[in-house]
Design a protein around this nucleic acid. Structure first.
Length: 913
RNA sequence: GGGCCGGUAGCUCAGCUGGAAGAGCGCCGCCCUCGCACGGCGGAGGUCCCGGGUUCGAAUCCCGGCCGGUCCA
């Protein structure tokens, strides 16, 4: 959509003398004070030329951030601290990609007020879409950057400020704080869309560099159209790194962002420092560079070569390596940020994104042919950013360990791929693009490395420029065919029906120990019942629903399911309720069951607290389930738990049980709760409401939780971890039982042991000895059987010596006491290898018919095809069979006697195939 | 969450158009040697991931599951 021109006319422009123009080449509208401009001043319309703009100089990233925040603090904005780069409060995003993400969707959809209004924030953000272009474009693309922003949320009944003020702030900030001449600042008209919202925006650029975007979020996208929204939001984004780059006027953004770290990385990697003139040529040429445009990259190197006087080949070689260096600087910082916020690298979910960044960094190191350790480079970032992002140095131990693990895993993966490749090349095959895709897609080997290894073996293969889009196109999943059945229709129908009722009063929150209650019926719909108030807990928040009975007019109805539709609780009965709204019901919940669920639920919070303390703060709940039988908690962790760690967690959890800590359930304003307890509140998802229920185990664990809990940890009664396993890369599952259930589980185990003891005939406490002696006699028995088999073979060998000759071979047909095919086969193998001219057939009688195995010695097999023989015999005895040249078998429904088989064989061998 | 690849000796892997489980390295013993290394000879070591199916017969084919790897969202 293109907004109406009037959307961009603000009084400030008129007052100050800005005029609206259109770019001669770019054909985009922009506002400027400068009559000499013929284009909006950002790349690629113009080249970078801000190096010659006079302004406040020398601001590093920290200072740029400080200047921005102070500017807005002085102008009535309140500071809001940044959130993690992992967007755990969002269901639809893994990473924080912009400052507005902090307020989506709860604030932007109007449910929760913003923590301050207007506000100023500097939000570290991560975007991985252009990860391959980072470095190449000398600073236009970064995977991690800080978005400094001021936001104003305009409600219908509360207006803060809108376009004019926002533009004035931008102009004032750039002219007064950064000292940029006003006539060099350009406001370009544009349209912004994202996350279901849209609106007009200004892109503010100076000397080729876009420094800020001012978005006026005023629509929501709806079926391809736009609809005005009541909450209009000023969503700005100032690039902190770009301000630093602009202010320092270094040839690349990386020099401005990373300062002395650039040369430290250079030293570690062993990369020579390029001539300053080459970098400045790159600065001048990079504006036109569009990596998605074919040929653009080559043009860029050509232009750098012309501007610097360095040969094309040298310019390309140096800039390719420079881009890798800058990529490493960028990726290692991003990785440190992600890991510090508790991402555990894995092969799925957000963990994969961390692995992706780590692998890209490792690939760059490999391409640079450097022996530097990634973990050392990340450690430099930890130190460099410790003042700006304290969470990184606080979690240094975990960050470095996770990087180290990723590094060795990558090496193993590369080693595996290399071996597979060398094997394949040894077989003389050539490599196609398909093979490159295979090695990348299923073995993780980057195509450049595959090509390099192949070329050493003398096999040439070209990496196509569109390689990664070929891979991406293979992963477009086919449309899901979603089955819709009667069940789904029923749920929709019930939900619609339920929406007519007012929210149910939740007695289980007022008193978690309530077992029985009386209430009035509000609605009846067959087996579905809605009450005014209930003590039945509906399924939700990882806690299973209650069961019990409703008593109406002297009749008892069993409650088999309970669920929640927008705060209306629906009881599902076993049989339809014969009653009218208004009648009084008495409800009884199955208390023994509920109490166990409560114990397991509170135990879950205790264990999570213990796991975070034993394993580290990167541990997050990845899932949980609590039933009357056991509790189950999945946590994020980068390696399997050791026995010691499990024991520690269990002991620590039980110490909290014994400590009898109070457990409090409270309703708190969401913003207040976040400020007080932090985002670790949201372990089990984020409730979408202004006020949230918070469960606090004193001094131990605080989480947003809608479940029912005991009021003191002592009531858990004790916790026994019964199972720990790694359910996938990066996720560990812990299962446990609490209280009386632990005794039950112990009894079950005892019972099982007793039954086993019975089976093996051991007295209590002597089970192990008994198993040992049984194993010994089992072994001895095996030896005995072996001896008897040898005896059997000997006697058959004896028989074979005296066997008649038919068709040039010695024929032996015999029955067998052996029931095992394998044993018979082994026996035949021995017999025929000692007598090459023998054919031996063994009949195994079974309940329904017989199986016959026939083997031929080396000479005999030359004379007669045993497999063919078996097939013929099978035909004769109404069975089926076949085999190879030297071995065959068949099955027949007849109870075969050695005599008749011998007769048949003699006949066949006599005429013989 | 989806796609792809894989699971066979202690390790790395062949065998996979169904028909008597293999190689290299490692290990053990012997020969050679003052000793080591090299070399030579011999040997031990297997639930062919699990379960079901097809078949006279399955490491091999089919279905289901488990585990590992990898790419993508």
């Amino acid at each position: 959509m293109q907004a109406k021109p009037s959307e961009y006319e603000v009084p400030f422009f008129k007052e100050t003398g800005f005029s609206r123009r259109v770019g001669e080449k770019c054909r985009e509208y922009y506002w400027t004070l400068n009559p000499d401009f013929v284009e909006p001043q950002d790349v690629p319309c113009v080249d970078y030329w801000f190096d010659s703009v006079k302004s406040r100089s020398g601001l590093n990233v920290s200072e740029a951030r400080r200047v921005f925040i102070d500017f807005f603090l002085k102008r009535g904005h309140e500071y809001v601290p940044p959130r993690p780069v992992v967007a755990r409060w969002r269901e639809d995003l893994y990473l924080t990609i912009a400052s507005i993400v902090v307020f989506q969707p709860h604030v932007t959809n109007g449910i929760v007020p913003p923590p301050a209004n207007p506000l100023v924030i500097s939000q570290p953000s991560i975007r991985l879409e252009d990860i391959d272009n980072v470095g190449l474009t000398i600073g236009r693309h970064l995977t991690s950057f800080e978005m400094a922003a001021h936001h104003a949320f305009n409600y219908p009944d509360k207006y803060i400020y809108w376009k004019d003020e926002t533009v004035r702030y931008a102009y004032e900030f750039f002219t007064k704080e950064l000292g940029i001449p006003g006539e060099l600042i350009v406001f370009k008209e544009a349209w912004w869309e994202g996350g279901g919202n849209a609106g007009p925006c200004f892109e503010v650029a100076v000397g080729g560099l876009e420094l800020a975007t001012l978005v006026f979020m005023s629509y929501k996208t709806l079926n391809g159209g736009y609809e005005e929204i009541p909450l209009r939001i000023v969503d700005t984004g100032y690039g902190v790194e770009r301000i630093a780059w602009f202010s320092q006027k270094t040839p690349t953004a990386f020099h401005a962002i990373y300062g002395d770290l650039v040369d430290k990385f250079r030293d570690s990697i062993g990369l020579e420092k390029p001539e300053r003139t080459l970098l400045w040529a790159a600065f001048k040429a990079a504006g036109k560079l569009d990596p998605d445009e074919p040929g653009s990259v080559e043009d860029y190197y050509r232009r750098v070569s012309e501007l610097s006087g360095v040969s094309f080949e040298d310019a390309r070689r140096i800039l390719v390596d420079e881009a890798r260096l800058y990529g490493l600087l960028d990726h290692t910082k991003t990785l440190a940020l992600m890991l510090a916020d508790g991402i555990v690298p894995s092969n799925s979910g957000e963990g994969y994104l961390a692995r992706l960044v780590a692998r890209r960094a490792l690939r760059l190191l490999t391409l640079l042919k450097s022996n530097a350790k990634l973990v050392d480079l990340v450690d430099m970032q930890v130190k460099y950013w410790s003042g700006d992002f304290p969470q990184i140095s606080e979690n240094r131990g975990y960050v470095l360990e996770a990087v180290d693990i990723e590094e060795s895993r990558f090496k193993e993966t590369m080693e595996r791929a290399r071996r597979a490749l060398e094997r394949e090349l040894k077989r003389g095959s050539s490599l196609t693009v398909n093979d490159l895709v295979k090695y990348y897609d299923s073995m993780g080997a980057p195509p450049e490395l595959v090509a390099e290894i192949a070329s050493k073996a003398g096999v040439r293969v070209e990496v196509p420029p569109k390689f990664y889009s070929i891979v991406a196109s293979m992963h477009r999943s086919p449309p899901r065919i979603k089955g819709y059945g009667e069940a789904e229709g029923t749920i929709t129908f019930v939900a619609e029906w339920a929406s007519k009722f007012k929210p149910t009063r939740k007695l289980y929150y007022e008193d978690p120990y309530i077992r029985s209650f009386e209430s009035r019926i509000l609605g009846v719909n067959g087996r579905y019942v809605i009450l005014e108030a209930t003590a039945f807990y509906p399924t939700g928040g990882g806690q299973i629903h209650d069961v019990g009975v409703l008593i109406v007019g002297g009749r008892e109805y069993r409650v088999v399911d309970v669920f929640n539709v927008d705060d209306v609780i629906i009881h599902v009965l076993e049989t339809p309720l014969i009653s009218e709204p208004g009648e009084v019901v008495r409800g009884l919940i199955d208390w023994a069951r509920r109490f166990r669920i409560m114990r397991h639920h509170t135990a879950t919070h205790v264990i999570l607290g213990a796991a975070r303390r034993v394993l580290g703060p990167h541990v997050w709940q990845a899932g949980a389930e609590k039933t009357e039988f056991k509790g189950r908690l999945d946590i994020t962790h980068h390696k399997p738990l050791t026995m010691e760690e499990v024991a520690k967690i269990e002991a620590l959890a039980n110490s909290i049980v014994d400590d009898r800590r109070p457990v409090r359930n409270m309703l708190i304003d969401r913003n207040e709760a976040e400020t007080k307890y932090g985002l670790t509140l949201f372990q089990g998802g984020v409730p979408m409401s202004r006020v949230i229920r918070v469960l606090d185990i004193e001094g131990w664990d605080t989480e947003a939780c809608g479940g029912t809990h005991v009021t003191n940890t002592g009531e858990i009664g004790g916790i026994k971890i019964v199972n720990v396993e790694r359910i996938q890369d990066g996720v560990v599952r812990i299962e446990y039982v609490a209280g009386s259930r632990a005794a039950e589980v112990a009894s079950e185990l005892e019972g099982r042991l007793a039954r086993i003891a019975d089976l093996i005939g051991a007295s209590r406490g002597r089970e192990e000895d008994r198993v040992k002696s049984l194993m010994e006699s089992f072994k001895a028995l095996g030896d005995t059987v072996k001896a008897y088999r040898e005896l059997l073979i000997e006697s058959l060998e004896e028989k074979l010596r005296g066997a008649p000759e038919v068709g040039g071979v010695k024929l032996l047909v015999t029955g067998s006491p052996e029931k095992s095919r394998e044993a018979v086969q082994e026996m035949l193998r021995k017999l025929t290898s000692s007598e090459e001219r023998a054919i031996v057939a063994v009949i195994m009688r079974e309940a329904e018919g017989s199986t016959v195995e026939i083997a031929g010695g080396a000479k005999a097999s030359e004379l007669h095809n045993i497999g063919a023989l078996a097939r013929l015999l099978a035909g004769r005895f109404e069975g089926k069979g076949g085999g190879s040249k030297s071995y065959g078998s068949f099955k027949t429904p007849r109870k075969l006697e050695p005599g008749e088989l011998a007769e048949a064989l003699e006949e066949l061998l006599g005429s013989g195939p």
